[in-house]
Design a binder for these strands. Structure first.
Lengths: 223, 223
DNA sequence: TAGATTGTTAATCGATTAACAATC
DNA sequence: TAGATTGTTAATCGATTAACAATC
């Protein structure tokens, strides 16, 4: 697989391609052109062909793309076939919701263990995931492969826990706390799920539309 | 406030400015230059000044920006002072986690009610939010202002519930289901929180780094 | 073969960065 | 006043779109 430097925008579109291809597979569609795919995703055919061409030649002239084959290519590009291992830090509401509802396996991940500080849940299993004490975390990290740590701890714990994780060799954090962990110098990969950023963007668009409607109404009034 | 067409990239940066300004306020910093703000956020000073200039003139030559004043401007641009009302559809794990942990009020929203189909929770309160039956949703919508619906229903319910919401005048959806709701023709604003997209992006970068390390190791081997 | 559609090169468009006059 | 830093215009850079030869 080519590994030229691929722009962030392209990478963020890959999961959307994957999802659409799964949808097509479900509907029994086995062949798709960049034109049709573009129509369904709101992208131009050009963009789609450019995106794919970063990674190889997956189509066939005059035919288009084979849906399952393309799906497999993208899954592989995303690393879904590498058997990445994840652990979860913090088994509060968000942690439990993720464990119950988010199918890590579907996306190529194995959630091997969860860690918490509350004695009453330490040693129990939650949806086939053992809950261990934070005290044994560094030992666990020295004995097991951990590719990603899912950070679902309370706000206050975010920074110290991150420090501890990076010091013990964890190279990637999926951050659900509303704390900015990304440090300019750090080698650690951080992917943020900032609920508030998402809601505030939506809020902006709602406000914008409200203003537009008010302006239209004011214009109509003047007539 | 100016309302020229502002690019999506700018809008997505606004919440990050807000968060950083809150952080500065907490640290007692009351004045900041585009240079310093840029250093802390990893943006260029130029970009920051360009971004703000979409909405007005918030700084002062030779001085910089007043932190609380700038914070207030951005909050207002994002619509945080409009008292938007939200309702939640689906009080499962994700819904409960959001209600318990996400402070809607902090971001200018009021979560007025939640809706579910399970009789055992209908009529109860959850963290000061009344849980009502889905049967009374359309009536509720006709009687109350609802700016945003938080969609935390099971996958299967996502599309029919969305249809019902839009038909009853809900103009914006904060979508936590892993279903693509955005329809090209629709007027409805949809903001997606796609956990899987986020994890898969991270997965890509982890895989990329793994490959780079392997390549380095292979080169070292050959020497 | 003719029609369709790719992969890729070139053209366009938009976003980021640099530069600088204005001014606090 | 001198130094600092803005807001904005111009230059650069990168991403998207268009075009088209290659070819299934």
């Amino acid at each position: 697989m080519k590994r030229v430097k691929v722009s962030n925008n392209v990478i963020r579109r890959l999961p959307r391609y994957l999802r659409k291809l799964d949808e097509l597979t479900e509907s029994g569609v086995s062949r798709v052109s960049s034109f049709e795919l573009g129509k369904q995703l709101g992208f131009t055919p050009s963009q789609i062909r450019q995106d794919f061409s970063c990674f190889g030649e997956f189509g066939q002239q005059g035919y288009g793309y084979n849906v399952p084959a393309l799906r497999a290519e993208i899954a592989s590009i995303l690393g879904m076939d590498r058997g990445f291992h994840a652990i979860m830090i913090g088994v509060g509401n968000i942690g439990r919701a993720l464990t119950e509802n988010f199918n890590f396996g579907e996306w190529g991940f194995h959630l091997s263990a969860a860690f918490d500080v509350r004695p009453e849940i330490i040693g129990t299993m939650f949806h086939e995931v053992p809950i261990l004490s934070m005290d044994v975390l560094s030992q666990y990290l020295s004995e097991h492969r951990v590719d990603v740590a899912v950070l679902t701890v309370p706000k206050e714990a975010a920074v110290p826990v991150t420090k501890m994780l990076t010091e013990n060799g964890v190279g990637a954090i999926w951050n659900f706390t509303n704390v900015e962990l990304t440090e300019p110098n750090s080698q650690t990969l951080v992917e943020n799920v900032h609920f508030s950023d998402s809601l505030l963007s939506l809020s902006y668009f709602v406000a914008e539309r409200e203003d537009e409607r008010a302006a239209r109404a004011a214009r109509a009034e003047r007539l």
